[in-house]
Design a binder for these strands. Structure first.
Length: 644
DNA sequence: GGCCCCTAG
DNA sequence: GGCTAGGGGCC
């Protein structure tokens, strides 16, 4: 029906045949409209597997997989030669390749300070940790930034980044071809005159150039095999027979390819990771181009090659069309390739799929206006989750997993704070999945605390848990919880009173009862190692876990209040909180103590005398999830400081 | 701001 | 399939 249109009509891709003028070249800020725009997508090959191979100092040629419980989460290329894929059982993979190197991903274990590599982690007691990969990822991104100081770099995921080469490439072109900097006096239209013909391009060692006309005979001599391990490559990155098709945009692509090649080599030399890259005129094409040839390769998509590259492409391979939208398109028109969809008019598409489908319409024609923009160095959210093979059936069993997840979040947040001390997660969210389908979540404001401990996080998590699933006594019907997720969202720099906050975070709080060290001047003291590296799990050890089971009438009631050594006041949990189960009440009291100390400390930093006002009962973590007015961000922080 | 859904690696 | 992350819609 819609099929049969096998050949793209060149006019569908008109946008790519723009004449490049002096004005284009000499303008600095044309943004996504820049006809010389060059974007790359660079990703790491089988990243998790590569991380383990590098970490263990193994030969990269060995077949290696990363295991997570019974399945695989990464398969390196040597292992793929045996037909091993992800989504496969370990036993199956080993059968296919007996000498397979199998590395289990690092896990946290109860009672341990940090994640580590265990022989036989137990899914009942461990949770996996991807920390090592996150750190390695940051190293690679940092090398991109160092090696390409004028390029825009956007980390797109743990193993890939977009790089906008437009600026460095323009600079380089002007350097190599200085005559372009001046509009010749005899140019017919001044700045709007076309640039002179571009020089011929030698694509050797710049990667694989995707042929413009794949069916035609290709030239020899422009072979573009990789210098690194890619000896077997027979790809001939043939340029079209006649050089007349070469444009200045091709020159730009070739310069970018040169830069990309250099950076990839640097990363390999310094970190040991092989990368694949795609270089094209925009993000979407760069992404599609990167997959042209892997691993350890880079490919270049010239503008002339766009129509024939795109037309036969199954559109569900395109970013954002891989899901429901792509499926809906395929079903609506009973088609599968980009070429098939080119016959659908914009009107038609918008009628069926809404205004926004202009985006799809353009993408199919190689147009993508999205910008490469640097993401802030810090993640906006932090999630720790655990699927439960043995579903939780009683609300009281939740506390244990909340603690485990809280411990991971504490570790990760404090690690992030080593670089950026004023990092503050504004909200904490608990997701709980019941059975297979339904999943619900609750969130609450997270207190701004100097020392984010497991206790503080777990106390907040417990509260959310109570609202989400209730308590043993409040529930008569059995439950079946198959997954628990605890996350921070809205992680940002605490922006108000920056200096105060810095001081607040850096200095060690006065130890209760230790009056001598209570002076605010103690900031000069070396940062106590314990402040950030105190293993959150230490407190989660045996007695705490045991506490879960021995909630009996006979055991003495846990403390629900404490007397502050500094102000002499008794600070108590609210009645509701105090009535919680022991283990939970304990967390909440610990959190309260933390906040109370913060209060004193902040007061001192602000230079107040101690006796002016006894700290009121501070209860940020007490903030209910709904209804009650949550204080504005600034007030939240400002509460800790008096104005000067 | 709170909660849900979609997408992707 | 498990563990993350980001963005958008809707009230």
């Amino acid at each position: 029906m819609w099929k049969g249109k096998s050949k793209a009509i060149i006019s569908d891709f008109e946008d790519i045949h723009r004449i490049i003028t002096y004005r284009h070249l000499l303008s600095q800020n044309l943004g996504v409209k820049d006809p010389l725009r060059v974007v790359a997508l660079c990703d790491s090959d089988a990243f998790y597997a590569a991380c383990e191979q590098v970490r263990l100092g193994l030969d990269p040629a060995l077949p290696l997989v990363v295991q997570q419980w019974d399945s695989l989460i990464a398969v390196n290329y040597p292992a793929r030669k045996y037909g091993i894929t992800r989504m496969e059982k370990i036993s199956e993979a080993k059968r296919k390749c007996p000498e397979l190197v199998v590395v289990h991903v690092a896990t946290y274990k109860e009672g341990e300070a940090e994640p580590s590599y265990w022989e036989n982690p137990d899914t009942l007691t461990h949770k996996v940790s991807l920390d090592h990969y996150r750190r390695e990822s940051m190293k690679i991104i940092q090398m991109f930034k160092d090696g390409l100081p004028t390029a825009e770099i956007e980390k797109a995921s743990i193993d890939e980044a977009f790089i906008d080469f437009t600026r460095p490439v323009r600079d380089e072109i002007l350097k190599r071809y200085p005559y372009l900097a001046q509009v010749p006096p005899d140019a017919p239209n001044g700045l709007d005159s076309p640039l002179p013909p571009p020089p011929p391009i030698c694509w050797d060692n710049l990667g694989t150039v995707i042929p413009a006309h794949p069916n035609e005979e290709q030239l020899d001599g422009s072979s573009t095999t990789e210098p690194q391990e890619d000896v077997g490559a027979s790809e001939t990155g043939a340029v079209d027979g006649d050089d007349s098709s070469t444009t200045w945009h091709d020159v730009a692509l070739s310069v970018a390819a040169e830069f990309m090649m250099n950076v990839r080599h640097e990363v390999y030399a310094k970190l040991g990771y092989t990368l694949s890259a795609g270089i094209a005129r925009n993000k979407f094409l760069a992404k599609l181009t990167a997959s042209y040839k892997k691993p350890n390769n880079q490919s270049v998509l010239r503008d002339v090659a766009i129509p024939n590259y795109l037309t036969p492409m199954p559109f569900q391979k395109i970013r954002f069309l891989g899901g429901k939208l792509g499926k809906a398109l395929a079903q609506e028109y009973d088609v599968s390739t980009v070429g098939d969809l080119l016959t659908i008019s914009l009107d038609e598409m918008q009628r069926k799929f809404g205004e926004n489908s202009i985006w799809v319409y353009e993408i199919l024609r190689g147009i993508d206006r999205s910008e490469v923009k640097e993401k802030s160095a810090v993640n906006k959210s932090m999630l720790a989750s655990k699927n439960l093979l043995h579903p939780v059936t009683k609300p009281s069993q939740g506390h244990h997993w909340i603690r485990v997840l809280a411990a991971e979040l504490a570790l990760r947040l404090n690690e992030a704070r080593e670089n950026i001390p004023a990092l503050w997660p504004k909200t904490i969210v608990l997701h709980v999945r019941h059975g297979y389908d339904s999943s619900r979540s609750k969130q609450a404001a997270f207190p701004f605390t100097r020392n984010v401990t497991v206790d503080v996080i777990a106390a907040a998590g417990d509260k959310l848990w109570k609202e989400l699933v209730g308590t043993d006594s409040s529930r008569s019907t059995p439950i079946s919880i198959t997954s628990v997720q605890l996350s921070f969202t809205g992680i940002e720099l605490a922006e108000t009173g920056q200096r105060n906050i810095e001081g607040f975070l850096k200095a060690r709080p006065p130890v209760s009862g230790d009056q001598s060290s209570a002076a605010a001047g103690s900031t000069k003291r070396k940062r106590d190692e314990r402040e950030f590296s105190e293993p959150p799990f230490v407190q989660l050890a045996a007695e705490d876990v045991r506490e879960d089971v021995k909630v009996s009438e006979t055991s003495a009631r846990v403390e629900t209040s404490f007397v502050c050594k500094r102000c002499g006041k008794r600070v108590a949990l609210s009645d509701v909180d105090a009535s919680a189960e022991d283990a939970i009440a304990r967390d909440m009291l610990a959190a309260l103590r933390m906040e109370h100390e913060d209060f004193h400390f902040a007061q001192e930093l602000a230079g107040q005398s101690e006796d002016v006002s006894a700290p009121r009962k501070i209860r940020p973590s007490d903030t209910p999830v709904t209804k009650r007015k949550v204080p504005k961000v600034k007030e939240g922080i400002a509460r800790f400081f008096t104005q000067r």
